[in-house]
Design a protein around this nucleic acid. Sequence first.
DNA 1: CGGTTCCTTGAGAGAACTCAACGTCGGTGG
DNA 2: CCACCGACGTTGAGTTCTCTCAAGGAACCG
Lengths: 259, 259
Amino acid sequence: MTPFDAAPATAALTATLTSAHVKIDCLVCPVRTCIGRLGLREENGAWCAILAPRRAIMPGAPPLFVAGTRVLALYSVRAGCIKTYTIDAQGNEHIRGFHLPGDLIGLDALGSERFRSTATAVEPSQVCVAPLAELRRVVASQPELAEHLIEQASRELALALALSGNFSAEQRLAAFLLNMEQRLLARDGLLRLPMPRRDIGAYLRLAPETVCRTLKGFALRKWVRGEGRDLRLLARDALQKAAEPVVIDAPRAAFDLAA
Amino acid sequence: MTPFDAAPATAALTATLTSAHVKIDCLVCPVRTCIGRLGLREENGAWCAILAPRRAIMPGAPPLFVAGTRVLALYSVRAGCIKTYTIDAQGNEHIRGFHLPGDLIGLDALGSERFRSTATAVEPSQVCVAPLAELRRVVASQPELAEHLIEQASRELALALALSGNFSAEQRLAAFLLNMEQRLLARDGLLRLPMPRRDIGAYLRLAPETVCRTLKGFALRKWVRGEGRDLRLLARDALQKAAEPVVIDAPRAAFDLAA
DNA sequence: CGGTTCCTTGAGAGAACTCAACGTCGGTGG
DNA sequence: CCACCGACGTTGAGTTCTCTCAAGGAACCG
């Protein structure tokens, strides 16, 4: 069991943490697992240092950052759920991603100088701040960190590409549930979605009603159970089959060589 | 005028180049512009060396790589157009991206160990091969290159996220035309699309017929002109307005602080 | 208790798809 | 030289998936 199974929707998260807390808190920081995987020493101050400044983000509060503003820092989600989105001319909200503990926010802005989206909290959340200047400095001195950033961007890219495919509502929703289950480290298929139906729809290109109806379809087939945002995935294999985001195709054209 | 304005659909591209040609050819390689931008010396052998092995890729020929196989190298497009795609269970092709000269292919696979898509040529093309092991080595010694990779992945991510939004056929096609015009370095809005309507549709989540009809709608409004794949963008501003992929939204909620 | 947000369900509307047909073009071979 | 073939682009007609609009009920909060 990880420290993040318990929903972090406590008032304590809103408290401002002093830098004195940093070292202690970092021991339970989700980013720490990444550090461990990279073979970095926990005492290594470089990565922890740039993550020191914490920020608590509340739903409805001012955004973490706003589309169009200059990128001054990236953010690492420590707890909660942050959504990044844009608003089009018709006023529709397009959610570009949900960021869960351990995820970096703002990777899609590194190519430009400005944020492409606005970031707000879906539930009470906390992020660590990685100022861009310091990030560059650390990247230069620690190639492992650069590789970590590339890998994270790569994974996010793969997810975005899989989602941008021409799939049906059922396929996308099934893929979404499985993805969220995996990223939320849900146990026994027990899953508490942080976001409302409207946000799921804005992410999956579906009307909230369609999300609801499709979910009901899954429930009728006994693939999922639950009410509202508390779900239980009963038939993961069936969902996986329904999702089928990518089929590994055989090298069909490889035989044209003989012709 | 760049060396890539002329369509490279010549038989010469199919010829196998020996390593003796590398140094000379690298002077006209699109990647060179990146090297210049990064402040690297042209004589710097590290980056050029790993790009040395060339491969010619022809439409209908065996893929450059196949989804599911291990990632042994990334590929830098030197000429032509490479598409990456997946085939779903229904046999539908989902195109994840068109890669033009200067683009890297396979960035979305760095997070996993295997390619997520299959890559084939849309038109006669040529790529440079960057073996993963050497790439890692160079990244470790040259942080600028790491930043370049991150930026490239970031831009690709931003494009994928913009495209994955819930936009209409007109919005997506307009955005696609503008994006292709920019990336093909089209002059005077003169644009020769390398791919058939079917591929555009598979990329934009549209039926080929819808691509055709939407394009005709643009033509009726005098926004574009041309026949088949040869297009001329007459009203770039109108297309830009129709595309409206992202609207920079004002920090509306920023005033909640006072409440 | 009123107000708000969210979830759910129903009925009608619409955007895009499917199916079908036709003309064009370039290559191939009789 | 021309018929044939396949791939592509275009257009039309009917269908379908998803959206929009509307409404009711539940949960939460001040």
